[in-house]
Amino acid sequence: MNNKIIRVNNLTVRYGSLEVLKNVSFEINRGEIFVIVGGSGCGKSTLLRQLIGLEVPSSGDIFIDDVDFLAVDKKSRKEILRKFGVLFQSGGLFASMTLAENIKLVLGEYTDLNDEEMNEVVDIKLASVGLSGFREYYPAEISGGMKKRAALARAMALDPDILFFDEPSSGLDPLTSASLDKLINEINKIFGTTMIIVTHDLASIKTISQRIIMLDKSVRGILAEGTPQYLTGLKDKPNVYNFFNRIS
C-alpha cells in the first residue's frame, strides 16, 4: 500500500475571473495529522472543499489512495467517500434528526449492521466524544461545543481512513477546544486515522499538527511547508514567521 494517502497535483481553482488557488501540489502521508493554515481568504476552505469532493477544481488532479478522485465513476466515488469522515465548521448535523439518527443514517447506508448493533455503535461513538445519554437529543437542544463533538461522533461512525476538519476549534472555549485536540490525537494514535485539519487556531496547531502547509493570497497557493517548529522559526519568510508568532 502506498504511504501517500492523498496526492494533489497542480490544483487550480477559479471562480469566474477570480483565481483562488494556482497550481497547488502536495502529498499527505497515511496516518499523519496534516494541517492547512493561512490567513482569511487564502483558500483554505476552498482547498478542503476540493479534497472532499464538494467542488470540482478548474484544473489539476486529486488522488486518494492512488485513485483519481476527479475521474472515478459514481460507484468508485462512493467507495472513496466511505473512507472519509468530515467535521464541518458548524457541525452539519441534520436538525430534524436526533443525534442517534444522525449517526445511524451513515451506518445504515454503508454497513450491514442490524438496528441493535447500530444502537450499540451509536452509544460507543457518543461515549467516545463524551456525549453518553444524549442520543435522543436534537442538535438544537445541545450547545455549540456538544454539536461539534456529536458531529465528530458521526464523522467517526464508520472508522474512516481520513478525517477532515474545517475549523474544529471555532466557537469553542479553550477547554473544550483542548479536549477536542486531545481526542483528535487519540483517534490518530489508536486508529492510525489520517487527519486533515483546516484551522488558524495556533494553540491547536501546536498541539496536534505533525506537518503543516501554509497558504497565502499573495502566491495563491502554498507559501511554506513543514513541521510547526520549523515554520515557527522561519524568519526569512516574514508572513509565515509573523503568522506563527502572532506578530501583526
Binding site: I124, K125, A127, S128, V129, G130, L131, S132, G133, F134, E136, E186, I187, K189, I190, F191
Partner: peptide, 21 residues
Amino acid sequence: DDIESVISLMQTTPTLAVENL
C-alpha cells in the same frame, strides 16, 4: 494494547449525567 486503547477510548465516561427516558 491496541485493542485496550480502542476500548478505553470508546467507553469514555460521560461528561454529563442525563435523565434516562
